[in-house]
Amino acid sequence: MSETKQVMVKVKRQAGPKEAARWEEFSLKWRPSMNVIICLRDIAENPVTRDGKKTTPISYDSNCLEEICGSCAMLINGRARMACSALVDQLEQPIRIEPMSKFPLVRDLIVDRQFMFESLKRVKAWIPIDGTYHLGEGPRVSPEIQEKGYPLSNCITCGNCLEVCPQVNEHNQFVGAAIISQVRLFNMHPTGAMNKSERLSALMGPGGIQECANAQNCVHVCPKGIPLTESIAEVNRDAWKQALLGWLVG
């Protein structure tokens, strides 16, 4: 092609939580290995829509740009994914970019994912160490446990698994796959296991693991490839055992 190739982008804009949403279209100059973040940066540099109207830069979250900080999750062509690893050449155009729908909107593509961090508190997703002073080495951990735990601890709290879960919505405060998987991680660790029952109890509360209905969308969209459905199954097993045994033998 002799003339410069263009990239068509449609962005859902919303000035604030209570403002009306609208779509804006942009036509950007194509470059090799362009991703959605680069598109948003192009727009910020020259915030003019396709039909020549001046607009404001698009507000969006991003940080590491290598899919490890979890910031830039959004809907791209209707699917929840990380914007930094969404390569333009692999996307159908016009590229539709929208904010995630399951979290409160802040502005444009920014949503508030505080719910996830609160959930991590609720399930006590930590190892309760006595203190940071010298207490010697940690417990021995077999390579087998490490190889199971490490992928789980890769969770970047992006929220994609909540976004695609049919059980997460305005009627339902389901904590989602990421949090359940964290419970599995901490319950797997030799020290973390000491508080296993506490975490399981938290997951048997309102919005807990019972809300999972096995649609298994989560595992498809996890950018870190975490075996979320496996985590849910394992935690489920531990949970009902605890509930049943707690009831039977106190």
Binding site: I127, I129, T132, L135, E137, G138, V141, Q146, F186
Partner: peptide
Amino acid sequence: DLLDRMGVMFN
């Protein structure tokens, strides 16, 4: 050691 006690999944 401290990080290990905090549960870091070191190899």
